[in-house]
């Protein structure tokens, strides 16, 4: 097989370069981090196996599957409720390089698993003005009395379908959109954040998704 000169690219690689942008405020109102290290998969319960699925996830990951739009996490693995008997499973920092394959094995017969790892742009957002920035596009109420740590919502921003979750009390929000819409989401986010000043920080986690992709490519080429 001929060597392929493929290069792995993150969804916002050319748009979200580390640095300070927007208004020259004393302190950036928003900190933006593109997460490129998350293994992602959707999990859909098979009919009649819901109870066994709950037990299998608890046994494998020590997580009680949330029933509702919430996220439950442990040791870098999380399950976010995205619909009735449907979840988005995520593993940070390549906790397991073969996370999705292992998930498929562990939940065989109980759920349908669909690999999503390279399908999403994932941003972590925090800073003093994070709620002010999000309020410009997110049509749901993110006031702490209505949306708290552990809450998840699927909604739209500027006609772009997104998933948003509050990850901690700081607060840090995770905003996700399909990869093909990443540039459109970025157009909205960068303009909305400009008046507060924003900083793009490098992905803070040790493993990068691109490393894993490169490794996979090498193993294909060596066959």
């Amino acid at each position: 097989m001929a060597d392929l000169a493929l290069q792995a690219r993150t969804p916002l690689q050319d748009l979200a370069r580390p640095g300070r942008f927007g208004a020259a405020t004393a302190k950036p109102g928003l900190l933006i981090e593109e997460r490129t290290d998350l293994a992602l998969a959707t999990v859909m319960a098979r009919r009649g196996r819901e109870h066994d699925l709950n037990r299998a996830v608890a046994a494998a990951y020590g997580i009680d599957l949330p029933h509702g739009p919430h996220v439950a996490a442990k040791d870098g693995v999380s399950f976010a409720g995205i619909g009735v008997q449907r979840w988005l499973a995520a593993a940070e920092g390549l906790v397991e390089a073969d996370f999705v394959d292992r998930l498929r094995q562990r939940l065989a017969g109980l759920a349908s698993i669909a690999e999503q790892t390279d399908g999403w742009a994932v941003l972590r957002l925090r800073g003093d003005r994070v709620r002010d920035v999000l309020a410009k596009g997110i049509p749901i109420d993110l006031h702490p009395s209505r949306f708290a740590t552990g809450d998840v919502a699927l909604t739209v921003v500027a006609h772009i379908g997104v998933q948003i979750a509050q990850l901690d009390d700081r607060p840090t929000f995770q905003l996700m959109a399909f990869r093909s819409l990443a540039a459109s989401l970025w157009s909205w986010l960068s303009k909305s954040a400009a008046e507060f000043g924003y900083e793009i920080v490098p992905s803070g986690s040790p493993g990068r998704r691109t490393d894993r992709i490169t490794t996979t490519k090498r193993s294909i080429n060596s066959d």
């Binding site: 509702g68 749901i140 909604t155």
Partner: peptide, 10 residues
């Protein structure tokens, strides 16, 4: 019943 109150544009 899953997501809570939303605008009809969704």
């Amino acid at each position: 019943p899953y997501c809570g109150e939303r605008g009809n544009e969704e």
